[in-house]
Computed example of a mutant assay.
Amino acid sequence: MPLEDLFDRSPVLPPDPNISLARYLHTIRQNYQAAITQPDAQRSALLHIRLLQLICKTLPTHPEYSLPENKPLLKELRSIAHKSFEALEVFDEPVHHREPSRVDMSASLLDLFERIASDSTTRGHSTIGLLGGRMLPQPHVAALVMPSQTCGTICSSLRYENDVSQLMEVKDLLCFGLIHISPTQPEMGLPVELESYLSHYSNSVPEAFAIVIVPASEKRVRFYSCGNDGKVGVAHHVDVRNDGVPSFKLYDLRPLAIARDEQQER
């Protein structure tokens, strides 16, 4: 469908003065993430068009638009609009085939994960964590999620994955991939089970990657990602920063799973 027809399908509406500009921005953030993770190119383009019409045509008539205290909000709105314009320039390319953007991650997340996994690692078991991310203002890892899991020697598997999905939705996060440590993992490559997880996450978020920690290896931390051909290779788009940014939060879902298991045993 021509781009002009998509514009015609997306009417411009007046702003609701009862909805604050900050609330509009919150909704726009969510819709932008939906647009960039939408695998259907036409639907993705339509979402971007709606965002642009909202930012460029609707919101400038909002009564709060010219207030001095809203300048930071307007700056972020313009940044989102710029990214949506760029996305429309590659409208004919499926979203899930685009090249991943650079992702910032704090080095302290690696340290925290290893501390959490230390008891399991000492016992010879593996541990898996999930990475929650946000695309704005720059793609970054914003959360370390410790899911309920079955720990093996080489690889762990997730339990109660719906808990993870609900958390990601409530906290407005995208799954940026996983982090895994195993004291007995082979030196090279990504275990097949982890490849399956990574492939699944990459279908929604091209920035998704896997961190594999092998304590006994000389190169103990490795980064992997899925290419457009579906093959797993070394990830080059992750920037691990030592300056304390970006900040991230820890969400531990394991106590919730333990309580659920105990309830089921009664």
Rank of each mutant, 00 (worst) to 15 (best):
E4Y: 09
L6M: 09
F7Q: 03
F7L: 08
F7N: 05
D8G: 06
S10V: 09
P11Q: 13
L13C: 08
L13Q: 07
P14M: 08
P15C: 04
A22I: 04
R23N: 15
Y24N: 01
L25H: 01
H26S: 12
H26F: 15
R29S: 05
Y32L: 08
Y32P: 02
Q33D: 12
A34P: 07
A35D: 03
I36Y: 01
I36T: 04
T37C: 11
T37H: 06
Q38Y: 06
D40K: 06
S44F: 04
S44E: 05
A45I: 08
A45N: 05
L47N: 09
I49F: 05
R50H: 07
C56E: 13
P63V: 06
E64I: 02
E64V: 01
E69S: 09
K71I: 10
L73G: 03
S79R: 05
I80L: 00
I80N: 00
A81M: 06
A81Q: 04
H82D: 15
E86G: 11
E86S: 14
L88P: 01
E89P: 08
V90Y: 14
E93S: 13
P94G: 09
V95F: 00
H96S: 15
R98N: 10
E99P: 09
P100I: 02
P100Y: 04
R102N: 12
R102K: 11
R102H: 11
V103P: 04
V103T: 11
D104L: 10
M105P: 09
S106P: 06
L110F: 13
L110Y: 13
F113L: 05
F113S: 02
A117E: 01
S120H: 14
G124Q: 04
G124F: 02
H125F: 13
S126F: 02
S126R: 04
I128R: 00
G129P: 01
L130T: 03
L130K: 00
Q138K: 15
Q138H: 14
V141A: 01
A142D: 03
A143G: 04
A143P: 01
A143S: 10
V145P: 03
T150S: 12
S156R: 00
S156Y: 02
Y160M: 11
V164I: 13
L167C: 08
M168R: 07
E169P: 03
V170E: 14
D172E: 07
L173Q: 04
C175Q: 04
I179K: 03
H180W: 02
I181A: 12
I181N: 03
T184E: 05
E187R: 13
E187G: 11
E193T: 10
S196V: 07
N203G: 09
V205C: 12
V212A: 07
V212S: 11
P215R: 06
P215D: 06
S217H: 13
V221M: 12
R222Y: 12
F223W: 10
Y224C: 09
Y224F: 12
C226R: 00
G227K: 03
K231D: 11
K231A: 07
H236C: 14
H237A: 08
V238F: 06
V238G: 02
V240D: 09
R241C: 12
D243N: 15
D243M: 15
G244T: 15
F248W: 10
K249V: 12
D252S: 06
L256P: 01
L256D: 08
I258P: 08
R260F: 08
Q263M: 15
E265G: 14
E265V: 14
